[in-house]
Design a binder for these strands. Structure first.
Lengths: 140, 140
DNA sequence: TTGTTAATCTGCATTGATTGCTAACTAGCA
DNA sequence: TGCTAGTTAGCAATCAATGCAGATTAACAA
């Protein structure tokens, strides 16, 4: 079952349902994240948002992204260098990052829920993050 | 083929072979990392080192760990929260982290080199990092 | 053993990413 | 239209890590 990326309208409803207000700043970020496959950082989104809404604060961008993540509408990706990337795709998937240009893509790994793991030592697993490191077609 | 954790003596040779000097500070860090399965942060190691060598600087700990990593004798683990963890096990393995206490363990994943990946879009893969998130036996 | 030199150490400043704080503002509701 | 709790902007503060420079020292040669 694939959980589709939510539309700005659906996110508005979701915010209201959680007792959160929907401001113009938040609506802008909803739109910027909708169907966004760039895996942007908060700074990148702030820069994009600033062109459409001069004066919006970086703090507000962080706050809204954090709220979205807390509601499960956004996934955080730590690629091990630089700032966290945000991904509106909350489907079961993983990532590949280009070590040269930093480009990140969604990838789908067969049976990633059923890996054979040795050495768990009593750990209960909640989730799995697979990160492939390599070089993209452009940088190769 | 398993690459064993190198002993302090072997690391000393490796440093010399790379034109690097071996200082008492470095020897101490070699010893502290040898067979260390705690996946410590630089700060943690600094704290451990300080008890045996008061006055050693955090900067030196970072420097030595960075040198070891550059020589491939150490692996960096980014668990997505807090500081980077250092792992003297450079064998092909992965990690599970307890989201409650931060404990990290080495795990071995069957066929992790042969995952079926969809959506690579021309990326060439150099390495794979699998991070399992969950709770350890103590925190469960 | 001593001298030379490049590498290293310490301590401090700086950067980068993110969060904390608060007064002014406003979305949502009565 | 007013009320009120949630939000925003801006700036300070924190945390992890790196940059820098003068004092120190490991390693090698004489």
């Amino acid at each position: 079952m694939v959980r589709q990326v939510k539309s700005p309208i659906e996110l508005t409803d979701a915010f209201h349902a959680n007792g959160l207000k929907v401001t113009p700043q938040r609506q802008l970020i909803f739109r910027l994240m909708h169907d966004n496959t760039m895996h942007p950082t908060a700074e990148t989104l702030f820069s994009d948002a600033s062109t459409q809404m001069p004066g919006i604060s970086l703090r507000t961008v962080y706050q809204t992204l954090t709220d979205l993540a807390a509601m499960g509408e956004l996934r955080l990706i730590d690629v091990g260098a630089g700032a966290v990337r945000f991904d509106p795709n909350v489907d079961d998937h993983h990532h590949v990052v280009c070590e040269l240009c930093g480009d990140v893509r969604d990838v789908y790994v067969a049976d990633s829920q059923n890996l054979s793991i040795d050495g768990l030592d009593g750990f209960a697993i909640d989730s799995t993050s697979i990160l492939f490191h390599g070089s993209c077609a452009k940088c190769a």
